[in-house]
Design a protein around this nucleic acid. Structure first.
Length: 733
DNA sequence: TTAGGGTTAG
């Protein structure tokens, strides 16, 4: 008959009470009178002992310990241990069992204390202790125990080896790992025990020693799925996706059945290589093998689809899965952000929170990236709150994303305060900070941080150089930028990319050193259209029509249908008053069906985003906006504002040109913000898809003075912070 | 009585 837990508990207590009563009421218990007077039978009921043997008593204790494990009760194990000691029972003879019980009840400290008291320990006990430390991610302590074994005359066995290699990879102790590998080869365990073999492969793989990992796999005669999967994982985690696929093919060829672990890893390789066909094949195999309800392989599956750009298929996998965990929710959000579906990513994030799934640093950094792409400052601040709540404000991934978000929203002070709070800094948050400075035109700050990197023990990488060059370019720090550029050229660890060249071309071009910029582009092996377009835009700034024609040819050779190139040249003709060429360009563009991106400005007012286009009357408060704008223009004209009609790219008379300038999208947006912002102390933030025009730049400077408001404008390239009639860019942009 | 491989990132 099955007894209820309650009766079982009573039985347990009765046994201990019996022992205890014996101690307190009877003569001082000795081992012999304990053995003579009591024992427990199979059912754990107390029965008279009647000369039972030591073995039988020990069986009784063992039986009690099993009950403790079932009930996961550490305190009861402690009571038993205490009882053994007090009653004079040689408790260390059951030490291995006691330790096993403590470990199964997750009390490593009790186990370790007893372990240290034991004069002799069984190899099983050593192994259990070590495995427990590893399970609890206490690699340092596991390593110390392992290192105690040999001096104490205990030889590690196959169980020891199958756990200990994880310690070497966790603590990145390759020489120690190799030493242990040597012991294995001598013992012959390397190729004969699959547990040992796969642990060894896993260590080499995690330490990036993939050749060693592969050699071990090759030496094992009878391979199994775990061994081969460890190698596949190693390849995918080190960007060797092609090799992972090849190992997978061999696995199939050798008739080894892949399981959910294998599928989870091989799908990553398919995703990284954008091998949709192979990915779909694996999807079929997952269904056939019945692993559709395993969360990790389904997570990899949805990531594979999103990396191949099939975001709808990715969402289908997610929607079908009922018990998505934190990682799966995160994976779908990350996929959406990577595919430019930021709004949906944010809405799924809100669903995740409603479902009481906590975000982690992966989730929050993806969500923050969504906010920065959409320039959602308010939302970004809220996510910052969540980062703090999750205790991740010192995390370098979340930190880098926060710095990016604040940087892209133009709040350089917040970006810096997040940066200063980071504890473990690596190159990425530093890059984010330098890039934030670059966008806001704080070139000197960017350089200061860049120069401090080596003192911080950090090596700048290619992204660092792109950021610092952009900072020099935006701040007009030409000589500093060129010095850095030549230092990259002599740095063998950095591959100069087109991004680096683009920064320098932009830097030289804006400074009017067009010839040098052109020479530089001609040094690039395969210049792309972006490089030519960068130079073309410099030609436009400096009115260099002849060079522009040459540059345009360079650009159109690469991409005949690039609308940006056509628009730039057409604007250049317009700014020099060459209307015949403008008309010609426009008809060419019509023939080629190229459309000009219309200029748009977004403004974040009282937690709502409002969009404006030039001369736009679609906003419900347009009447008030235009009225206020006209009076604002009259006011600043008195202070010296003169409309700069050079920025009108249409063939109109002077008066008409002025009128067309007045209603540019950024002017409408700012006027609307002035009209409606409830808190007059907050700064106005506007975002523009193209670059801000020169006339609007002057206009905003005046408005920041008369309205006594700080105005932050992010255009296609950078930020302008307007305050009291001045702009942070120093009119250089 | 003790043992091996997995999912999300800039």
């Amino acid at each position: 008959m099955q007894r209820s837990p309650k009766t079982r508990a009573v039985g347990f207590t009765r046994i201990l009470n019996f022992f205890t009563t014996l101690q307190t009421t009877g003569p001082k218990p000795t081992q012999s009178n304990l053995l003579k007077t009591s024992c427990v039978d199979q059912d754990n009921e107390v029965v008279p002992f009647n000369n039972r043997s030591l073995t039988e008593t020990s069986n009784a204790y063992a039986s009690l310990l099993r009950r403790c494990i079932e009930r996961k009760s550490v305190s009861e194990i402690r009571r038993i241990q205490l009882h053994m000691t007090k009653s004079g029972f040689p408790h260390l003879s059951l030490g291995n069992k006691l330790i096993d019980a403590y470990l199964k009840c997750e009390s490593i400290e009790d186990a370790r204390k007893l372990f240290d008291e034991m004069p002799q320990r069984h190899i099983v006990t050593w192994n259990s202790m070590i495995a427990s430390y590893i399970r609890h991610k206490r690699s340092q302590e596991a390593l110390k125990l392992y290192q105690m074994m040999l001096p104490e005359g205990v030889l590690p066995d196959e169980f020891t080896f199958s756990s200990i290699f994880k310690v070497f990879s966790d603590l990145r102790l390759l020489p120690e790992g190799r030493k242990a590998h040597g012991l294995l080869v001598v013992s012959g365990l390397e190729v004969s025990n699959l547990f040992v073999g796969s642990a060894l492969v896993d260590m080499y793989a995690k330490l990036g020693k993939l050749r060693d990992a592969r050699l071990v796999v090759d030496r094992v005669m009878e391979k199994d799925v775990v061994l081969v999967t460890a190698l596949i994982v190693g390849y995918t985690q080190h960007g060797k996706d092609g090799e992972a696929l090849e190992v997978f093919r061999n696995l199939v060829k050798e008739g080894i059945k892949a399981n959910e672990f294998t599928f989870a890893s091989i799908l990553i390789a398919c995703g990284n290589l954008e091998e949709l066909g192979k990915g779909k094949l694996i999807h079929g195999l997952i269904i056939k093998s019945g692993f559709e309800s395993v969360v990790a392989s389904q997570t990899s599956l949805l990531t594979m689809y999103s990396k191949c750009g099939l975001i709808d298929d990715s969402l289908k996998v997610f929607d079908r899965f009922v018990n998505a965990n934190q990682v799966m929710w995160t994976a779908v959000i990350v996929g959406l952000v990577q595919n430019g579906r930021e709004e949906l990513a944010l809405s799924i994030f809100r669903r995740m929170i409603r479902s009481s799934i906590n975000p982690n640093s992966f989730t929050l950094s993806a969500t923050l990236r969504a906010c920065s792409s959409l320039a959602m400052f308010e939302q970004g601040k809220q996510i910052h709150g969540r980062v703090m709540k999750a205790g991740l404000d010192k995390d370098r991934f979340a930190g880098a994303a926060l710095i990016d978000m604040y940087g892209k929203c133009g709040n350089i002070e917040m970006a810096r305060s997040v940066f200063d709070a980071l504890v473990e800094i690596d190159v990425v948050p530093v890059n984010s900070m330098i890039y934030s400075y670059a966008q806001s035109g704080y070139g000197h700050e960017a350089l200061k941080l860049f120069n401090r990197m080596r003192d911080m023990g950090l090596e700048p990488n290619d992204a660092t150089f792109v950021s610092v060059l952009a900072a020099c370019s935006n701040a007009g720090l030409i000589e500093e930028g060129l010095n850095i550029f030549s230092s990259i050229r002599s740095n063998p660890t950095i591959d100069l990319s087109r991004d680096h060249y683009a920064c320098v071309v932009d830097m030289l071009g804006r400074a009017g050193r067009l010839k040098e910029a052109e020479i530089l582009i001609n040094q690039v092996k395969k210049p792309d259209v972006v490089l030519w377009r960068t130079l073309l835009s410099a030609c436009r700034i400096h009115g260099e029509v002849e060079m522009a024609k040459r540059v345009m040819n360079g650009a159109l050779e690469l991409e005949p249908g690039d609308e940006g190139t056509h628009v730039l040249l057409s604007n250049l003709y317009a700014s020099t008053g060459n209307w015949t060429q403008v008309i010609k360009m426009k008809s060419t563009m019509r023939e080629m069906r190229l459309k000009k991106n219309p200029a748009m400005t977004w403004v974040d007012v009282d937690r709502g985003v409002h969009t404006f286009m030039a001369g736009d009357w679609s906003h419900p408060r347009s009447g008030e906006i235009y009225e206020m704008l006209d009076s604002l223009i009259e006011k600043i004209k008195d202070l010296g504002y003169v409309p700069d009609t050079r920025f009108v790219l249409q063939d109109l008379d002077e008066k008409e040109k002025e009128r067309s300038l007045y209603y540019h999208s950024e002017k409408l947006a700012i006027t609307f913000a002035l009209l409606s912002n409830s808190n007059k102390n907050t700064c106005i933030r506007i975002f523009k898809n193209l670059r801000v025009c020169g006339d609007c730049h002057t206009w905003i400077k005046f408005v920041s003075k008369v309205a006594r408001r700080e105005i932050i404008a992010r255009d296609a390239k950078r930020f302008h912070h307007f305050r009291d009639g001045l702009c942070s860019c120093g009119d250089y942009w």
